[in-house]
Simulated scan of single mutants.
Amino acid sequence: MCRWLAYSGSPILLEELLYKPQYSLINQSLHSRLGVEPTNGDGFGVGWYGVDRTLDAALFRGVGPAWGDPNLRELAGHISSPLFLAHIRASTGTPVQHTNSHPFRHGRWMWVHNGAIREFPKVKRDLVLAVDPALYTSIAGSTDSEVMFYLALTFGLRENPVEAVQRMVGFVEATGRRYGVEYPIQMSVGTTDGEKFWAFRYSSEGESRSLFFSTDMTALRQLHPEVEALRHISAETRIVVSEPLGELVGAWQPVPEATYGVVQKGADLMAPFQPIAP
């Protein structure tokens, strides 16, 4: 369906994750190993915060395949960021257009999604009408992913991100089942306000799309003292990915089924995810 990654830690050039790893995100756009489709060529995007995180995120999005975009290649070698999201899209039926490329942004918040609301055309009207009227006019595209984002904002993403996503998923499931959809939602989601990052892995059928997080950097340095790159990033650096960027032993840990995680200053958090029915 799609592939995405999130980075939080010492400022690095975007190309360090988009292009340089063995199985970089650009490599995955052509040769995904764990995705439903091996090729993700229906648009791309990257959103990043500067060192001054009081400013809103910047976005660069395109509608072509990521592997062939020279502007992305150029920017990735010159933009350094302490927190960024990147996404490569494989459409589940909505058009390939600029407004349908992730990340989606509203104020300081960004959102990326891999998965689908099943039978979206059947339930779309009910879902969209539940969006706060003050937010409705900000919906620019036609994807289920963007509707999920604005439902989460409606349910309080800015105040309590975990509860807001739980309520969003519960509402989507209740709506879908009212229309006879057995398994209404499939998702891995990443969202951030520029300070913290939240990741969610969940599906109605209990067979969610893959998601991994990087091992604690202090432990990883002890495992691999020979890897020089690990010496130059902070102990709090964390990467969350749809699939691993390489085969370094011990570097990647799977996010369990029906789980959310929070990347933040100090100790990160991981806990079970349970939808809240309306």
Rank of each mutant, 00 (worst) to 15 (best):
W4H: 15
A6G: 15
Y7H: 10
S10Q: 11
I12R: 15
I12Q: 08
L13W: 15
L14P: 14
E15Y: 11
L17I: 06
L18V: 10
L18Q: 09
P21S: 14
S24T: 04
L25M: 13
N27S: 02
Q28N: 06
L30A: 12
P38H: 03
D42H: 14
F44E: 11
F44S: 04
D52W: 08
L59S: 06
G64C: 11
A76E: 06
H78E: 11
H78N: 14
S80Y: 08
L85G: 00
A86H: 08
A86Y: 11
R89M: 02
T94G: 08
P95D: 13
H98M: 13
N100R: 14
H102R: 07
W111P: 07
P121A: 14
V123R: 01
L127T: 02
V128M: 09
V131N: 02
T137N: 12
T143F: 04
T143I: 00
S145A: 10
V147K: 04
V147H: 08
V147C: 01
L153I: 09
R158E: 14
N160E: 15
N160G: 07
V162D: 08
A164G: 01
Q166V: 06
R167F: 03
M168N: 05
M168G: 05
F171G: 04
V172R: 12
E173F: 03
G176Y: 10
R177P: 04
E182P: 05
E182F: 04
Y183F: 09
T192L: 00
D193W: 12
K196V: 11
W198V: 03
A199C: 09
G206A: 08
E207G: 00
S208W: 01
L211A: 11
L211M: 14
L211H: 01
S214F: 03
M217W: 01
A219S: 15
H224E: 03
P225C: 12
E226H: 05
E228S: 06
R231T: 03
H232W: 13
R238M: 06
I239L: 13
V240D: 02
V241W: 02
V241M: 07
S242L: 09
P244G: 04
L245D: 09
L248V: 05
A251S: 14
E257V: 13
A258D: 10
A258Q: 07
A258E: 07
M270G: 08
F273R: 12
P275Q: 14
I276S: 04
A277I: 01
A277V: 13
